[in-house]
Amino acid sequence: MYAFDIERPATVAEAVAALSNEDAQALGGGQTLIPTLKQRLASPEKLVSLTGVAEMKGISSAGGVLTIGGGTTHDDVAADGSYKALSELAANIGDPAVRSRGTIGGSIANNDPSACYPAAALGSGATIVTNEREIAADDYFVGMFETALDEGEIITAVKFPIPEKANYQKFVQPASRFALVGVFVAKTADGVRVAVTGASNEGVHRWTAAEEALSKDFSAGALDGLTVSADDLIADLHGSAEYRAHLVAVMTKRAVAAAS
C-alpha cells in the first residue's frame, strides 16, 4: 500500500468536511477497498473512515419503509429480519468475517457488477439517501462501478419499501462467492420488480419482460418461454454469456417460487 492518513470522523458533517480534500477517499467496511489498496491500485492521500459515524448506523422501520444507515454492517442487516428477503441476502454476502465489517453503504457506493446489495436496492425500488439528497435506485445505478454519487458524497442511509413478497436467489461464482448471477424479485401493490446482478457488463439492471409477466401472474410458470439475450452479458472463466442468460431465467423462477 502507498502511504496515507486515516481520519475517523464522528459525524456525517465531519466526514463530509474531511472528504472535501480531493485526494481523500471514503472508507466503509473496507472489504473491497483494502484489497484494492494492497494491490497498489489506488493511492489516496487520506482515507476517511466512516465506521465511527454513529448516525450512519442502525435500522429503523416506519410506515412500511425500512431505513438502514449507510454504515450498518451486513451482519446487522442479516440479524434484523424485518425485511426477510433483504436479511437473507445480507446473510449470504461474503463470509461471516466480511459481514462483520462490510456495510450496505459501502457496497452500494462501490456498485460492483456482481454484488448482492445493488440487486436488493434496485429490485425493491429503494431510495439512496446521501448527505445531500435522496436518489431513487432506478436513477442511482449508472453502470458497472458507476453510480449517481458525486465526489465526496456519502450514502447515509438506504430506504427500502417493504414489499408484499420478495426473494433473492444467488448462483455463486465459486471462488469469490460474489454472484455469478443473482436475481432479486419483489412483489408490491404496484407490480413486480426483478433486478439482476452478476450478469451484465452494464451492472445491475431490471429484467422488464419478466416484471411484466410476473405483474400479471406472480408464478414461476408465468416466466415459461421468457429468455434473456446473451448480448452484452459478462463472459469470463466462470461462465459464458449464454450460461449467464440461462441462469438469469432459472434464478428468477426460483426467486418467484421462494418469495415470501
Binding site: I6, L27, G30, Q31, I34, P35, L47, S49, P96, A97, V98, S100, R101
Partner: peptide, 8 residues
C-alpha cells in the same frame, strides 16, 4: 470475527 488483514 474480523479478517485482521482487511482492517486498519
Amino acid at each position: 470475527p474480523v479478517k485482521s488483514c482487511t482492517m486498519f
